[in-house]
Design a protein around this nucleic acid. Sequence first.
DNA 1: ACCTAATCCTGCATGC
DNA 2: TGCATGCAGGATTAGG
Length: 276
Amino acid sequence: MPELPEVETVRRQLAAAVVGDTIVGVTVPYPKVLQTQTSAAFAKAMVGADMVAARRRAKVLLLDFSNGMTLLVHLKMTGRFLLTDRHPEQRKETEVVFLLASGRVLTFDDVRHFGWIKMRRTHEVARYLEEEGYGPEPLDPLFSADVFRSRLALHSGKRIKQALLDQTCIAGVGNIYADESLWESGIAPIRRVHRLRTADVVALHGAIRLILSRAVADGGSSANDYLDIFGRKGNFFPKLQAYGKDGTSCAKGDGGILRKRVLGGRGTHWCPVHQK
DNA sequence: ACCTAATCCTGCATGC
DNA sequence: TGCATGCAGGATTAGG
């Protein structure tokens, strides 16, 4: 399920491979994915537009076009862009097809139809994001432990796992990297935020940045469905130490057996020995 | 203020 | 083999 590292990987690939190309045709086999336009209006606006930038905020891709519009794309769990040299075989999960001037085809697929695409004027995107209230970008150099502490203070009564999943607290962290960061920093997911000591916050801050940057460097994790725009899996999955590791012994070497329980509706994995 | 359940949706794993 | 069940989950929302 795409989180910051997976979305960032897709962003980089689109920036390198698609920016500069021009959309020459659009079809929308699954119009419900478009949250702000009809298929006809969408196609009319996009045909002839050049992709001029691929940005990201939280888990949202921001694709800027020369027509002054930006596509905001959320992959949710199974959304994916796929870039191919020639027109792909028809797939029932394909939601949007972009024909490019280069002759290549970019599709947006989503088996579970959770993802969405919105269109906004590029100059209004900053305001849109402001209204969504996303928290700081964890890999931003300005995201210090102090900033993290002040964000957490807005969620003081929650369990730390749920604060990490709240995009208004910190942006881009999802279920996998929340569990990994808590495992790395030795904090139990059920801990209340206001019970965290400064040293805990500093450790967690460092763990989030370390793990997310490593995962970005590895092209993300393919735990279930994630594929990049070339249909390849990410390389970080084998490096996960907590997610999906329930029943196995803790890699910290403390003799703990990782457990799993549902917390806030999300499968949560942790080591009962070193995570306190 | 916080919690859980339901919702959206399909594929896959499990169990009988 | 085939059928039913449940589980996975990002984010939002309704209800407790």
